[in-house]
Amino acid sequence: MLITALRAWFTRPGAQIPAWYLTHSDFVVGPVLRLMHTNLAHPWTLDALAAKTGVSRTNLARRFTTLVGLPPMTYLRERRLALAADLLREPGATPAAVASRVGFANAFALSTAFKKQHGVSPSDYRTRESHTGT
């Protein structure tokens, strides 16, 4: 129902269609986003994504960056880290388990990227979030 409502809203005369909406209907970027979101833990590379969509790495990187606002691998890392933050709030979640679910090779790799993005380690984030209740 939401998709139908969005389509109706964005196809009305004079509608300003946001870039995020256009990305999903793009013949290159749409399939790449679906691949990433469907299997976030997969060890995606720019080469693999380009091969899956039948375009060159350069074309994929340029088109993705133009429509999404970030290069594909940066987008993927940020998406993984956002999901990791959500998963770390779950009771009993460990950095190693979260790393595996979101596509980091191990807890150390997740911790390094997470600390760079959030300013704290996954363990500290988990402790802080459990005390604040958010």
Rank of each mutant, 00 (worst) to 15 (best):
A109I: 03
L35G: 02
F27Q: 13
R63E: 13
I3K: 12
T45D: 13
A15G: 12
D26S: 07
A105W: 00
M36D: 01
G103W: 01
T94I: 01
Q16F: 15
L35C: 10
V32C: 14
T11E: 15
R79E: 14
L49Q: 02
R126K: 15
D86F: 07
L70H: 06
G119F: 04
K52T: 03
A84H: 00
M73D: 10
P31G: 07
A41P: 00
R63C: 13
E90F: 08
D26A: 06
T66K: 13
T132F: 12
L110D: 04
G103T: 01
R57W: 08
P43S: 01
M73A: 07
G119P: 11
L49D: 09
A97F: 01
L76D: 14
R34A: 12
L88R: 00
S123W: 05
A97N: 10
L67E: 11
Q16G: 10
H42W: 09
H42V: 08
S130T: 06
A50I: 02
S111K: 02
R34S: 10
F10G: 06
S130V: 06
R7A: 15
P72N: 00
H37A: 07
W44A: 00
F104S: 01
K115V: 03
A93C: 00
S121W: 02
F64K: 07
G69K: 04
K115P: 04
L40P: 07
V32E: 11
G69Q: 03
A93N: 01
M1S: 15
L88T: 00
T58D: 13
M1A: 14
R63S: 09
V120A: 14
M73L: 15
A113K: 02
P91R: 05
T38V: 08
V28F: 06
A48V: 13
W44N: 01
V98F: 03
N39R: 11
G69P: 10
T45R: 14
T112P: 04
L49C: 05
R126W: 09
A97W: 02
E90A: 04
W20L: 09
N106F: 06
E129I: 02
F114D: 08
T53V: 14
S130N: 11
W20A: 11
T74V: 12
L22F: 07
V29P: 13
W9I: 10
F114I: 02
S121D: 04
F108L: 04
G119L: 08
L22M: 08
R57M: 11
P18C: 08
V102K: 00
P91Q: 04
T58L: 15
P43K: 02
A97Y: 00
G30L: 05
L40C: 03
L70N: 12
G14K: 03
I3S: 05
R77E: 13
T132L: 15
A5E: 09
L60F: 07
H37T: 07
R62M: 15
E129T: 05
L70T: 07
T94A: 12
A105L: 09
L83K: 00
L70K: 05
T38L: 15
R12Q: 14
V32A: 11
H24V: 14
A50D: 01
A48E: 13
P18M: 09
